[in-house]
């Protein structure tokens, strides 16, 4: 795809990443490369380490070994300042939305703008209202508290919060979890729209195959702590990989064993 892959470093490059919790080995030497502007979906069963992977990149969990590079810059073992700088490029949409329930909706959306103190409160509020409009929420929502709006609206607010500062990289952790199919589709479209408008690089983790096909350029399957299949989203039906076939068709028989 790229003219000079040697000169342009991948946006995100993860190699041989390992993480264990006690005797439970969650990531067992994971490799993943994402180029700039690409949208990669990671699929995999519950408990295969999808969330752990994202949290490792974000620095919320410390990996045991391996390397994580953003724009060619190694994050593991770097100084706090460098990591903090790299983190300003990344934002995340949490599975539970994770809105701050002590703040009204607009302050949630404008949180980063207010923290950076670039704008006055009134200005930041106007920007938040614009961003809310971009995800299809009207002005009246801005002064409500997160507990006063529905789960689907919360997810949209969280999306607005994640994109307001125009991040270069966005992570989506199960963006459609707990939403009905129609709302899921709305959120998927919004994600595609936001990512395309920003030209951002996106990693989405999900086990919702409709969402995966809608959002992703590329799909990677995580199983037992490693990426076992990686290919374009369009060709996933013809992967010829028994694990992928079992997963996307939702069969209980196959190479993936569910521990009971």
């Amino acid at each position: 795809m790229m003219m000079n892959p040697q000169q342009i470093p991948s946006k995100i490059l993860i190699s041989n990443l390992k993480k264990s919790f006690g005797s439970k080995h969650v990531l067992r030497g994971l490799n993943l490369e994402v180029s700039k502007g690409e949208s990669v979906v990671i699929i995999g069963g519950s408990g295969t380490g999808k969330s752990v992977l994202l949290k490792c990149i974000l620095g919320l969990i410390k990996p045991d070994s391996g390397s994580i590079k953003i724009d060619g810059q190694e994050l593991r073992g770097s100084s706090r300042k460098l990591i903090a700088q790299a983190m300003t490029k990344i934002s995340m949409l949490f599975q539970s939305s994770a809105l701050f329930d002590s703040l009204p909706v607009w302050e949630n959306v404008a949180f980063l703008l207010l923290q950076r103190r670039q704008y006055k409160r009134q200005q930041a509020k106007e920007m938040a209202i614009q961003q809310l409009a971009a995800v299809g929420l009207n002005e009246r929502v801005a002064d409500l508290f997160p507990s006063e709006i529905s789960g689907g609206m919360q997810r949209r607010v969280a999306l607005a919060r994640a994109v307001i500062h125009k991040p270069e990289i966005i992570f989506f952790d199960e963006p459609t979890a707990g939403l009905d199919p129609i709302f899921s589709s709305v959120i998927n479209s919004l994600i595609v729209k936001c990512v395309k408008e920003l030209g951002a690089t996106a990693i989405t983790i999900t086990h919702d195959m409709v969402s995966a096909r809608h959002v992703g350029d590329r799909i990677a399957m995580l199983h037992e702590g490693k990426i076992i299949w990686d290919g374009p989203a369009k060709g996933i039906e013809h992967s010829k990989n028994p694990y992928v076939d079992q997963f996307i068709n939702g069969q209980s028989d196959g190479p993936i064993k569910i521990e009971v």
């Binding site: 949490f94 994770a98 809105l99 701050f100």
Partner: peptide, 16 residues
């Protein structure tokens, strides 16, 4: 509650 609903993680991803 902020911890178990990932709000503390969200704070960190918002550079706070």
């Amino acid at each position: 509650t902020m911890r178990v609903t990932e709000q503390i993680d969200a704070l960190m991803t918002l550079s706070t």
